[in-house]
């Protein structure tokens, strides 16, 4: 985890509250448990078939009997439950997932999410991403502020195929936090080392600023 990723993951961890059932998408989101306070009471759901994921398994392989949705060998906490895919997605679609933390290629200012396909370049399939984006009670997207071309991940309209429309409640980058209010993402918090100018760098659509900014920490 580099410095920017560490800022994102630590800020995202603060969105979790005790007692939540949370699904963490592949990549950066899976690093969140590592920065939660010891003994933090949260049930991590893995869509391939269990609730109550523990720490990664030291020395484990993809052949382990418990893997997460990204194929990492992981452990189960005491009180974990294993189930099949049908029940796992009943849990998601039925509204029992308090939060999903997902990555993104693009997030539109109206909360559309594109994170599964770059036509002609990256076509791995959506996995369980559409259900998570559409049905988690709260969708938090975490991402670097700019893509590798220096373009903001927050855009007026997504150019890539959508994972789900109007689903993103919170967008967290290493520079800022945006929350969806009355249907539009609004700038709500700025990292102490950033300014409004650096936050709006690379963002080419109008974004409102909350009347009162939240403290970062």
């Amino acid at each position: 985890m580099n410095e920017q990723e560490s800022i994102i993951v630590r800020r995202a961890a603060r969105e979790l509250s005790p007692g939540m059932v949370v699904n963490l998408g592949i990549g950066l989101p899976t690093l969140i448990p590592g920065v939660l306070p010891e003994g933090f009471d949260v049930v991590l759901h893995s869509e391939n078939g269990f609730a109550g994921m523990g720490a990664p398994l030291e020395g484990g392989t993809r052949d382990n009997d418990v893997i997460d949705a990204g194929g990492r060998a992981v452990t189960l906490i005491k009180g974990a439950a294993c189930f099949d895919s049908v029940l796992s997605f009943a849990l998601i679609r039925g509204g029992h997932l308090d939060m999903a933390v997902l990555g993104a290629f693009e997030v539109s200012v109206e909360g559309d999410l594109a994170n599964w396909m770059i036509p002609g370049k990256l076509t791995p399939g959506m996995g369980g991403g559409m259900e998570l984006a559409q049905k988690a009670r709260r969708v938090v997207v975490i991402s670097r502020h700019l893509d590798k071309h220096g373009r903001g991940k927050l855009v007026g309209t997504c150019s890539l195929p959508l994972t789900a429309p109007r689903c993103v409640d919170t967008l967290i980058t290493e520079r800022a936090v945006f929350r969806r209010r009355e249907g539009r993402l609004v700038l709500c918090s700025i990292h102490p080392e950033q300014t409004r100018e650096t936050v709006f760098e690379g963002i080419e659509c109008p974004v409102e600023v909350a009347e009162t900014l939240e403290p970062w920490e």
């Binding site: 893995s46 391939n48 078939g49 009997d65 893997i67 997460d68 189960l76 294993c82 099949d84």
Partner: peptide, 11 residues
């Protein structure tokens, strides 16, 4: 099935 091995099997 053990652990996360059940997935699509039953369906």
């Amino acid at each position: 099935w053990r652990g996360s091995n059940r997935n699509m099997s039953v369906a």
